[in-house]
Design a protein around this nucleic acid. Sequence first.
DNA 1: TCTTGAACCTCTAGCCACTAGAGGATGTAG
DNA 2: CTACATCCTCTAGTGGCTAGAGGTTCAAGA
Lengths: 138, 138
Amino acid sequence: MSLTIGELSRQTQVKVPTIRYYEQIGLLAEPTRTEGQQRRYRPEDVRRLNFIRHARELGFEVEAIRQLLGLAGDPDRSCGEVHDITKAHLEEVKDKIARLTALRDELETMVTCDHRRISECRIIEVLADHGQCQHLEH
Amino acid sequence: MSLTIGELSRQTQVKVPTIRYYEQIGLLAEPTRTEGQQRRYRPEDVRRLNFIRHARELGFEVEAIRQLLGLAGDPDRSCGEVHDITKAHLEEVKDKIARLTALRDELETMVTCDHRRISECRIIEVLADHGQCQHLEH
DNA sequence: TCTTGAACCTCTAGCCACTAGAGGATGTAG
DNA sequence: CTACATCCTCTAGTGGCTAGAGGTTCAAGA
């Protein structure tokens, strides 16, 4: 009927210390305990933890997941807020991609350096000289 | 002739606590001090700190920068190692872009959800259900 | 019933690259 | 000589875990 933390871990692919961490920060409710203080979980905890895992895999921050979990428990509400959170996250991801793409192009130019001496190395030059690339952030 | 930490900060756009942090982890050498223990920098410290800043802007990790700084000080050496470090970093950046692009596509499908009730929300469904997207890491 | 040992428990500290803040000292311009 | 911007050190916090110490519990097999 009830699962140990290890069984929950196996079913969700979330590591045991991570489960305890999620409990500590309030993403997972405190489960019941045996007399010896070991945690015992119910099947619905598997569902909740899977939800959390999927959201983390999609790059949602813990704070966003906390909000999504709150909203998800309210079936009659409009999902506008869920949409907004996801959209905001999508925009962040797009931003990151844009910045990394600029970075990639810069690095690709740099690695065309053909193994001369350090004193003529294009990479070292780019790094040592001025800030042509001040627009880049990370 | 010599610069205060604030002047160094202004010239390099690196924040004062960050400069002290770089000293602490050994990226910057300990500068001379006034009698009152305030740091005083030489112009070459500006160059070194600019090098560090450029490398950070390009996403190099501190460990990589430590190596690059070591190599940069050796003008007659071949820049093969510099090339390798940069190439490895480039590959990491490409990897990140690939993962984020997969994420973006997944999120874009999700946000096509058209504001129904939570109980029919596509986003919540994706998060709650299965792991079609187990291949995604972040 | 007892023993073994895998799995559990709590607690603290570490990772990266900073950032923030407390509480006090220094240095320079007027 | 005073005011006050800037400097100093030290500690703790950020996010999302992960690792390890040192001890306890539980279930299966003898």
